[in-house]
């Protein structure tokens, strides 16, 4: 059984079909890229998987379990992490507080959390991740004072905090400088080796080709191609979709 599977997932916005009959599978331990031109339904697909909004039709399975229609926070607590194109942070809190918040609901009951501050394990892990992302010196800054790139890294770090088994990343490297980009890729590979599975939406083809073992291409909400990087590079439908077909 795959770790994540969608069957005939469809999402309509009124009359516009954003995702169409999408069958998608991710095996444990994979790094999969989802690519496609702007507006091809990549982010919508992520949103339907994590139930940011409900899919019009189709089902989602995670760890052999039907999670269609479960509330977002519950899906997250089942071990799915995700980032957005637009960074999601608590801007009026410090970097460190942001990191700890991202993991709190995974621990303890409502009552126990009323009386405790933070688990030491989490503190250490937060330090570790921040260290790796080169933003540990900013840990007491308010998130709103960070640069765009730094916020992006923090967002990435927050998603990793609860050690999600499946990580959905929406353009993790856009707006991040070259050196950091390499570092993020290395980190993803490292975590992948430790057993975490990644699905990445990405525009940067270098990242896609270097990082991913399998690529899925969407166009107008439909899957038009699927395969290893070198197969996709030469696929005529993909080229048409990206560069247009001459009439």
């Amino acid at each position: 059984m795959p770790l994540l599977e969608t069957q005939k997932m469809t999402k309509d916005f009124y009359k516009l079909r954003a995702v169409s009959q999408l069958d998608f599978q991710v095996e444990r331990g994979e790094i999969v890229a989802v690519i496609g031109p702007n507006g091809s339904g990549k982010s919508t697909f992520f949103n339907c998987v994590t139930h940011i909004y409900p899919a019009t039709a189709g089902r989602v399975y995670y760890q052999e379990r039907d999670i269609t229609g479960l509330p977002t926070d519950k899906i997250i607590r089942l071990g799915v992490g995700r980032t957005f194109q637009l960074i999601q942070l608590f801007l009026e809190m410090t970097v460190f507080e942001n990191m700890l918040l991202s993991v709190q609901e995974h621990r303890g009951t409502l009552l126990s959390r009323l009386f405790t501050k933070d688990d030491s394990g989490d503190v250490e892990r937060a330090h570790e991740i921040l260290e790796f992302l080169y933003i540990s010196h900013l840990k007491d800054e308010l998130a709103s004072n960070l640069s765009y790139g730094q916020q992006k890294l923090l967002d990435f770090g927050m998603v990793l905090m609860p050690r999600p088994e499946l990580v959905l990343l929406d353009e993790p490297t856009s707006g991040v400088e070259m050196e950091m980009r390499g570092r993020i890729m290395d980190y993803i590979r490292e975590l992948n080796k430790q057993g975490q599975t990644f699905v990445v939406i990405e525009h940067n083809m270098d990242v896609v080709m270097n990082l991913c073992e399998r690529i899925i291409v969407l166009d107008y909400g439909e899957k038009i191609a699927e395969g290893r990087p070198e197969e996709i590079q030469t696929n005529q439908r993909v080229i048409d979709a990206y560069f247009g077909v001459e009439e």
Partner: peptide, 19 residues
């Protein structure tokens, strides 16, 4: 902290798994 988080952004809080 979770309360503050919800106050600042409900969506983000949900994405962090906060109920």
């Amino acid at each position: 902290m979770a309360m503050q988080a919800v106050a600042q952004s409900r969506e983000t809080a949900e994405l962090m798994g906060i109920n």
